[in-house]
Computed example of a mutant assay.
Amino acid sequence: MHIFELPSGTEVELREMTGAEEELLTNQRLIRNGDAVNQVLRNCTVRLGEIEEPSMKDVLDLLSGDRLFILVKLRQISLGDEAELELLCPNTACRAANIVTVNMDDLEVTPYGEEREFTFDLPGSKRKVRFGYLDGQKEKRLAALKEPSISSAMLIRLIDIDGAAPSKKLMNDMSLRDRSALRQEMLRVDAGVDTTVETECETCGIRIRTRLEAEPGFLFPGVRL
């Protein structure tokens, strides 16, 4: 077994992934609704703090930064520290394949603070917004949406606006200035493991940016585009 400290400070004990988890991660239906990753996290989390054999609810209650941290550590203990990615150039006139190797021990981890709710004054309207972190429960609700958007990803984190329950209309009516400022504030307080991968295309020099967990080589080494 392997023991780590999550960004939230909770200790987690993990076991390696097996063929059962690979089957889950190749099930397209389970991938689309997010259940594949949730089941993998549930299967491989042996202990969560004082909780032995955590339930699915325990896994879904985890903050998103903790969940991604666990996924990265599961990849490391199951398949090794390095992931070789084949990144396709986004330039339609180029489309060259670029090989990038990422060592997961080098990924920056930002710990969570003690706060779980935050207050922010919108710079334009001067309205007061309360919001919280994204967690597995909210991720599951987002995955269930037919057309998730930037608005829905922000809205699901809101607790209230000037004491009133948040709504899709309130988000749509919010000025771009206020939306941008709120989005930046949410990003500022977020924690967890930074899985951003950036490089330049070796052929045309254009910038390539992705996230480690979004690439096939993260969980399936040797897979080519």
Rank of each mutant, 00 (worst) to 15 (best):
V40S: 01
D190S: 15
E84S: 11
K168R: 13
N91M: 00
C204N: 05
T45H: 00
L74Y: 01
G132L: 06
G80N: 05
G19A: 13
A144F: 08
R67K: 11
R183S: 15
S78C: 04
E21Q: 15
T92Q: 11
L145T: 03
R157G: 08
N91D: 14
G49L: 09
V102L: 07
S64E: 12
C201Y: 02
V223S: 14
S167A: 04
E86F: 14
R116W: 00
R32C: 04
D135Y: 09
R177A: 15
Q76P: 03
F69L: 01
S167R: 07
S55E: 12
M154D: 00
R207P: 00
D173W: 05
T203Q: 15
V197N: 01
P7F: 10
R141C: 03
R127E: 15
G163F: 08
N91T: 02
E5N: 13
E213H: 11
P54I: 05
V102I: 15
A164D: 14
S167V: 05
T199F: 08
G163I: 09
E52S: 13
A83M: 12
I150L: 13
V189G: 05
E114Y: 02
L63W: 09
L142V: 12
L6N: 01
L187G: 11
L212N: 02
L62D: 04
L48I: 03
F131T: 02
P221H: 03
M186F: 12
F118Y: 14
G9D: 09
L79H: 08
R157Y: 06
S149N: 06
E22Q: 11
R224C: 09
L6D: 00
A36S: 14
V37D: 10
E200R: 05
D121N: 10
L212T: 01
R188A: 13
N98A: 01
F118S: 09
R29Y: 13
E86M: 13
A96P: 00
M104P: 00
L107I: 06
S8Q: 03
E215N: 06
R179Q: 15
S151D: 13
R75G: 14
G163M: 08
N33L: 12
D61I: 02
E86K: 11
R183F: 15
P54R: 02
T26F: 11
D190A: 15
R179H: 10
R157D: 08
L87F: 00
G222D: 10
R95W: 02
L79D: 03
L74G: 01
T10D: 08
D162S: 05
C44D: 00
E50V: 07
D35R: 14
L182P: 04
L88F: 06
N27I: 07
A164K: 13
V100E: 09
R75S: 12
E11N: 10
T119K: 10
T199G: 07
